[in-house]
């Protein structure tokens, strides 16, 4: 599904990713852990196509296509979804209108029929019920005045509606209480299947007890320094990143 080879990337001329290799087969969920500044968020932005993140070397193949050659909206249509670490506020844009516009933009690009307002509301309300989101969150402007937990649940609502092939969860657990964490995890787990992969970026092992990953990778100084099964997350929780960074150095 996703194949990252020898990826080097700079932000504002500063080298952040230094030859990162990572393969996520279809149907698998991988976790990336690592200390602050190791390049976790940069990786998610490079994969989603954010301006200002310059790839200087290496390749990213998504399915059969060169992901790095695509515009951000083309990547979304192809099935890449980035759940933002700090979800963006859109004052003056109603949440329901935004969600329907996004959904129909993706459907149009895929040659599928657009969905009308009534169908949309039905779909959205069903998803929101699972996420324990009150109806009025559809009427409010996107993420404006939302609590940290509401913003993250709104990201999950977008993900559920757009049903991506590859979800990039950038510290989706940050700022969540245990109930919200569980709702987020349930949403990800509900999408699990042979056509869904995810890259879960996190500081803490906590999220990974709810979303149990197939593989765990440790990122340090812009490259993967250690990979293992779910037990690696527990080891890290016990020993910290220091030992691994020292060993890699």
């Amino acid at each position: 599904m996703l194949k990252i080879e020898n990826l080097h990337a700079t932000v504002d001329g500063k080298q952040i990713l230094n030859g990162l290799n990572l393969t996520i087969p279809s149907g698998e969920i991988h976790a990336i852990m690592g200390p602050n500044g190791s390049g976790k968020s940069t990786l998610s932005y490079v994969l989603a196509g954010r301006e200002g993140y310059e790839v200087t070397e290496g390749s990213v193949t998504f399915g059969e296509v060169d992901l790095l050659a695509m515009e951000p909206e083309e990547r979304a249509v192809a099935g890449v979804f980035l759940a933002f670490q700090a979800p963006v506020e859109l004052p003056g844009v109603g949440n329901a209108n935004f969600l329907r516009t996004a959904l129909n933009a993706v459907r149009r690009a895929k040659g599928e029929a657009e969905i009308d307002a009534i169908q949309f509301l039905k779909l959205a309300r069903a998803r929101m019920k699972v996420l324990n989101m009150p109806d009025d969150m559809l009427k409010r402007p996107v993420n404006v005045g939302f609590s940290g937990g509401e913003k993250k649940r709104n990201e999950m609502l977008q993900m559920a509606l757009l049903s991506p092939k590859l979800a990039l969860l950038d510290e989706t657990d940050s700022g969540l209480d245990i109930d919200a964490l569980k709702l987020v995890s349930d949403t990800v787990n509900s999408l699990r299947g042979p056509d869904f992969s995810a890259l879960v970026i996190t500081h803490y092992q906590r999220l990974l007890t709810h979303i149990v990953p197939d593989r765990v990778h440790v990122l340090s100084a812009g490259r993967i320094v250690k990979s293992g099964g779910p037990e690696l997350a527990h080891e890290l929780e016990a020993s910290g990143y220091g030992a691994i960074q020292d060993a890699a150095a």
Binding site: E51, E73, G92, A105
Partner: peptide, 29 residues
């Protein structure tokens, strides 16, 4: 706002439409 444009594009909304949405929002108040 570049971040808002990127957010909309990351949800599959083409660049020109993303801009139109943000201009509309600016006028809303």
């Amino acid at each position: 706002d570049a971040e808002q444009i990127f957010f909309l594009r990351s949800r599959g909304i083409p660049l020109e439409q993303a801009k139109a949405i943000l201009v509309e929002a600016f006028l809303t108040e």
